[in-house]
């Protein structure tokens, strides 16, 4: 069912290279299809380039398509990034969720969406963000940071070591 839904979404943005499908308008060719890789969808327009930077797409040698300000029924306007031959681990997706929760990672294999993951804050973040407390041990020792997500709605995390609660949008990524 999920696959079907994504297929219908994908029709707009990733048509098969064999030609324009029946009933598809010129907009279908705005973004090229990928055979294998990841489509990151539903990105807020002001976060597209932040995410591209976090994923270090400037160093990627495979085909990368970045689109912004596409019309979206849910969001008004949205951004989309397609990366050929690249798949993201859960920890990479958690890292993205810190700056931009609720975006979708669609895994494409042989032009089909085989899995869809929504980036959401996990219960715990290991070595994803720095503690904002300068006298926290994690800022003074070569060690991994650990945060517990205490409020996913408000984006509040608590440092395992110094115990300080912090707004996730105010802290820096590792």
């Amino acid at each position: 069912m999920e696959k079907d839904i994504m297929k219908s979404e994908e029709k707009v943005t990733t048509p098969r290279p064999t030609g324009r499908g029946k009933g598809e308008g010129p907009q279908a060719l705005l973004v090229a299809a990928i055979e294998n890789g990841t489509v990151i969808d539903h990105i807020p327009t002001n976060k597209v380039f932040t995410i591209a930077s976090l994923l270090e797409l400037d160093k990627c040698s495979d085909q990368v398509t970045i689109g912004n300000n596409f019309e979206s029924g849910k969001m008004g306007k949205k951004g989309i990034i397609k990366i050929a031959n690249r798949f993201f681990s859960d920890s990479e997706i958690s890292r993205i969720a810190v700056v931009c929760p609720n975006i979708r990672f669609c895994l494409i294999k042989d032009y089909d969406v085989v899995e869809k993951k929504i980036a959401s804050l996990p219960d715990m973040l290991t070595n994803v963000v720095h503690c904002a407390n300068p006298v926290c041990i994690t800022n003074n020792e070569p060690m991994k940071t650990v945060f517990y997500v205490t409020d996913k709605e408000k984006g509040i995390v608590k440092c395992r070591y110094c115990g300080k609660e912090q707004q996730i949008e105010h802290i820096k990524l590792v």
């Binding site: 926290c136 041990i137 060690m143």
Partner: peptide, 22 residues
């Protein structure tokens, strides 16, 4: 430094008693 005792307890098998961390 805050959290130093907890970190110390994670890197050793010897029990740590926190006598104040920041």
């Amino acid at each position: 430094l805050e959290g130093a005792a907890l970190y110390a307890s994670e890197v050793t098998h010897v029990p740590i008693i926190n006598a104040g961390d920041g």
